[in-house]
Amino acid sequence: MAQISNKPKFVTKDEIKVPPLKELTSLREGIAPGHRLCTGCVAGTILRQMFMAAEAAGYTLIIANATGCVEVCTSIYPHTSWKVPWIHNAFENAAATITGAEAAYKALKKKGLLPSDKKVKFVALAGDGGTYDIGFQSLSGAFERNHDFIYVCYDNEAYMNTGIQRSSATPRYASTATQPAGKVIPGKPQPKKWMPEIAAAHGIPYVAQLAPSHFNDFMKKFIKALNTKGPSYLNIFCTCPRGWRAKEEEGILISKLAVETNYWPLFEVEEGKWKINYKPKNRKPVVEFLKKQGRFKHMFKPGNEHLIEELQRDVDARWERLLKLEQL
């Protein structure tokens, strides 16, 4: 009889130790330079940290990349930046594509036709547009089917590849090309979609929110996802200097501020159990995060103080909810 039980299972709860940075420098880089990501694009950093974790844990990643900045910038024929197997299919189907490859892995393994016996992990990689919006259905289906893969969303909070249009990941009042701050409407009226909780609601074994500024936490979570059997969802903060109108050198600083202001809390959900990984002792006001970015510039005009207050309330409400979730 073939396997019956398909229940998601998180296989390891062992304390994960990320080797010190110096040790990591001797490992293979998974992505080559020469990619065309913008100067200061933190997606490049995210990819490198992903591979550092994978190499440290002994996994080779097999990646399906949704259409987006990373996809476009890393695979311009005849060059590829990828040193691992990689596929781009379309915008909205990274999850379906990678789970097809994962199903192929299972089938070919059964038939003894696998070309390599190395430890592999399947990864769907997409921006917020490919995750929160157009790829949402494919992502949800793949989670429900319980494939063994990691879904990585590098969330730069808008459609940057196509010219900074709003997505459902764009925060309230950010100015984008399709919801610009004008005289009547002050940027995006709606708050950011709360994707991690939606992912967690699928009952998948592991969900986490990461920021590249907190690289130790980042790599620890990535290794956890690697060791998880079943689907994981990783929501990663990704500064976009161009789209956010931020300084190229401040990408990591903004990532730190996002965490320190509770704009981007670091948490994880292990088999349904929520845990905040970092609670800032002296939480900074969100204005510290906003003022570094041109997309929020209009909020600082006299008379717009209430916009900042409202965004602060969004951030506080999210934090309160996280604290409650942690108590569950």
Binding site: I87, N93, A96, T97, G100, A103, L113, P115, G141, A142
Partner: peptide
């Protein structure tokens, strides 16, 4: 793979076929 749409059905087939 009992997927959630035809779009995903063919997308998954693409992933699987690319996997050999």
């Amino acid at each position: 793979m009992t997927v959630e749409s035809e779009h995903s059905a063919l997308s998954a087939a693409v992933g699987a076929a690319a996997a050999g």
